[in-house]
Computed example of a mutant assay.
Amino acid sequence: MDSLGALSAFVHAAQARSFTVAGRQLGVSSSAIGKAVARMEERLGVRLLHRSTRTITLTPEGALFLERCRRIFAEVEAAELELARTQGAPSGKLRVSMPLAGMLMMPALCAFMRAYPEVELDLDFTDRLVDVIEEGFDAVVRAGEIDDSRLMARTLGTFRLKLVGAPGYFKRRGVPREPGDLRSHACLHHRYATSGKLEPWPLRRGRKRVEMELPTTAVANTIEPLIHMAEQGLGIACLPDFAIRQKLDDGALVTVLEGHTHHAGLFRILWPSSRYVSPKLRVFVDFMAQHLFPASAGATRSRAQRGSGTLNELSKEIT
């Protein structure tokens, strides 16, 4: 068991390229990680890691040893999983990477915590492209396509981007009838956290995509502030429908230019490919697939129609 502890210290340090990060992950000091690796190097009679003041890197021997250690821990994990399947309720820590918009998925996550109290969720909210395996995540939730043969995937649901604003805003500023009208409106934009670029609005005129420079009244790298600003009547925002369904239902926000927007997005959950899927991961994947996007397509259309109806009434009042 002492040897497995030293191997674990080496694997975490090698993957994180840091004794400090490895210590944080294992709940020990960085010096304890360094000493464990040094003792193992002395016992093996070979240097596994190059140390510098800023980082650590693998030696060629260390790279070979790391791959063998990964196989060892994969077998240990497989043995544990086989035993866990006979022990009833899923339990243990589950490390999941969520997009920054994942804060809007908290109702489903909280419901999962209530349903499986023995599973400890370790959530990392970021829009950067994480390496699921190298960074030690059990699963990652992301929108769009991800091509990685090392990962398994399951679709959680679809979403659309919609242009929305508060009824009071449109009463003051008027309702845009076609994409060009947006030039005279306050536009609230989302900036990608990874690239720093503004997320384009999916504007169409017929089948052709419309590209134009829009006013940048406000910019945010998460969508929660944009929802709040739009609800407060400060402008028009381009937001995913799953994040604003309740506000569309309540009439706090209404959609515009429905006939001039076209977008379809996909959320997936991905996890490392393996012969064995732990009980905690299996129930998490199943639960999120069932509860993250519970509304049917028909219900979504019904909500969109109700929102459009509200806007149509508003348009009549304005005109």
Rank of each mutant, 00 (worst) to 15 (best):
G27Q: 12
S52G: 01
I33P: 01
M105C: 11
H12T: 06
L49T: 03
R51S: 14
L104M: 11
E41K: 10
C69T: 11
V46D: 07
K35E: 06
S29A: 12
V11E: 07
A63H: 10
E77C: 04
V96I: 04
A63G: 13
L81F: 06
A36I: 02
Q15A: 04
E77Y: 03
E82C: 10
F10G: 07
R39F: 05
A89I: 11
F10R: 08
G62E: 04
E41C: 11
V76P: 13
M106Q: 09
R71I: 14
F65K: 15
R24V: 13
L104H: 07
E42R: 15
R85K: 15
S91Q: 09
A84N: 00
R70W: 15
V46G: 06
P107Y: 12
E82Y: 04
C69Y: 08
R51A: 09
V21W: 00
P60N: 01
V37I: 01
A108R: 01
A14Q: 06
R24M: 05
G88V: 07
L48S: 07
V76T: 10
S91A: 11
G45C: 04
L49N: 13
T55D: 09
E42N: 14
L58N: 02
G62F: 07
H12S: 15
L44E: 10
G27D: 12
L49G: 02
Q15R: 03
A63W: 03
R39S: 11
A79W: 13
A79I: 15
E80I: 08
L44F: 01
T53M: 12
C69R: 02
R51V: 10
A13W: 05
P60M: 05
L100C: 09
T53P: 00
V37D: 05
V28R: 11
R95Q: 13
S31Q: 15
A79C: 14
T20C: 00
G27E: 14
A101M: 13
I56R: 11
V37Y: 08
R17S: 05
F65M: 15
V37F: 01
P60R: 06
Q25V: 12
S18M: 04
V21H: 03
L49E: 08
P99Q: 10
R68P: 06
L26V: 14
G23C: 01
R17Y: 13
T59K: 01
Q87A: 08
F65W: 14
E61D: 13
A32W: 04
K93V: 09
L104I: 01
